[in-house]
Design a protein around this nucleic acid. Structure first.
Lengths: 262, 262
DNA sequence: TCTATTAGGGAATGATTGTTCCCGATTATC
DNA sequence: GATAATCGGGAACAATCATTCCCTAATAGA
């Protein structure tokens, strides 16, 4: 019914706006009332007790592995697979250009099933975003792990970024960049996540520089903070350039970028 | 003989329709139920005979200044002012999130008037894009002009980029970055323009490096091509980071970036 | 003054959108 | 077997979207 819809929308919006300001922890009705319904749009932005959809999902998986299955008919599709498929569409087309129809056909689910698993399109996007950042973080850290010292680890991270910015993967685009550009101006929930992710990445790079300071591979006068921020610009910029399909020569580009550590 | 605006439009459309390829994935906003009206997205990528709407406009203005006025009621609004207003909305919200209603209220025009002046929403965007790149190019070149040698000119360009990536202007965003991220994957016309603009910027930076080579302010071993491409990544990345509202310290950031010229 | 032509403006239109509703299916528990 | 609870799937819904239509106004030329 129309009234119901309007009320639900107004409610969600109100909660979101409220949490933007005061930062109330915990969100209503997430765990106890509806264990399979994850209203992450109402997640408190600055609370440290954010339980993103995906984390809640894993928790549910753990519970089911402990032979305590939630009541009702079990979910037939694999959530991660579905999110990966949603991810692909969102990365290629962005949020607004992706319709529910695009989403359902990509996820191979019916409309009703999507709305049973997620509150709305925004929640699907948020869940996809969490999954994306999780996967990317894993990839970046494993690239860093293949390095003898701070400098080499940083070089590997930059090379990994160039590779992901190129070819099919590059054309598909980065969801963080896409969200920053398309949504951060109008969507506080997205903006907070983008900001957090950029800060995480920056801290990671700054950490590698500090490691380089310690092991002697990076001169001590190289400012970790400033250099890391510039490198974030470089990596985000590479995703933009890669999306526009300009070729990027990894070794050459990274070779030049490594001058920043001189 | 006088070529009216409408004729110019029809001509442009004919060229675009003729050069329509196999239809590399339709434009998301385009409707299949308006067969007599084709979106601009079918423009041939590499045709050099594309005459964008706005260029035709300027031609018409020039002609009218030569006291040869086109027939019919004259336009009452200033095209550049209207485009500046459209620009602002497109930069803030992106293409898909900007409705015709947003556009008409921003441009202070009625729906019919917008559609009299432009073929469709896509054409408004394209015209706004052309105006944006024109204005930005002007700003960048004037920033470069305030420099004694190649190195100083390049520093000024980078500083100008940081300034534009910050604060309100930064939050508003760059239309080139926005177009690259949101549209270049599905819209060949936009992609071609984004690519061209990035190349233009890159060539400009490479030119400044060459000037530095010549005047001795930049060592000859600094590779102009590779360094310029990395600097394009930096500038585009700054726009992404600025859109996400992370603070950017111009002098510090540029100070680090100038190491690339060592 | 009449005609041709274009601009301004807003109502009308039809397609598409995100979302809800409903029904049958599947599971656990009683 | 009955009940409760959830899922899968698709039809139905209202809102919104981009676009067209139509009428009036303004200008040039005859």
């Amino acid at each position: 019914m129309t009234v119901t819809l309007r009320c639900a929308l107004r409610g969600a919006r109100a909660v979101e706006q409220a949490s933007k300001g005061d930062g109330v922890g915990g969100f209503p009705g997430c765990k106890p009332a509806a264990p399979h319904f994850y209203p992450i749009t109402t997640t408190c932005l600055y609370s440290e007790t954010i339980i993103p959809y995906y984390a809640a999902m894993q928790k549910a998986v753990r519970r089911s592995q402990a032979s305590v299955r939630p009541p009702g008919r079990p979910r037939e599709f694999d959530m991660d697979t579905a999110l990966d498929r949603a991810l692909r569409v969102f990365r290629e087309r962005g949020y607004h250009a992706t319709s529910i129809g695009d989403l359902t056909s990509a996820m191979r689910l019916a409309t009703g099933s999507v709305y049973k698993a997620f509150r709305d399109k925004h929640a699907v996007f948020l869940a996809a975003f969490e999954r994306y950042t999780g996967l990317r973080q894993e990839q970046t850290r494993s690239a860093a792990a293949r390095g003898e010292n701070g400098r080499e680890r940083l070089r590997n991270v930059l090379l990994s970024y160039v590779e992901h910015s190129q070819g099919i993967e590059g054309r598909r685009g980065c969801l963080v960049v896409g969200s920053a550009v398309e949504l951060s101006a109008v969507d506080p929930a997205i903006r907070a996540r983008v900001e957090a992710q950029l800060k995480t990445n920056e801290d990671f790079i700054a950490g590698l520089i500090h490691e380089g300071h310690a092991d002697g591979s990076i001169p001590g006068h190289v400012d970790a903070g400033d250099t890391a921020r510039l490198m974030i610009c470089i990596t985000q910029g590479m995703r933009v350039v890669g999306k526009a399909r300009l070729p990027l020569d990894g070794p050459r580009l990274v070779g030049v970028a490594m001058k920043l550590l001189a």
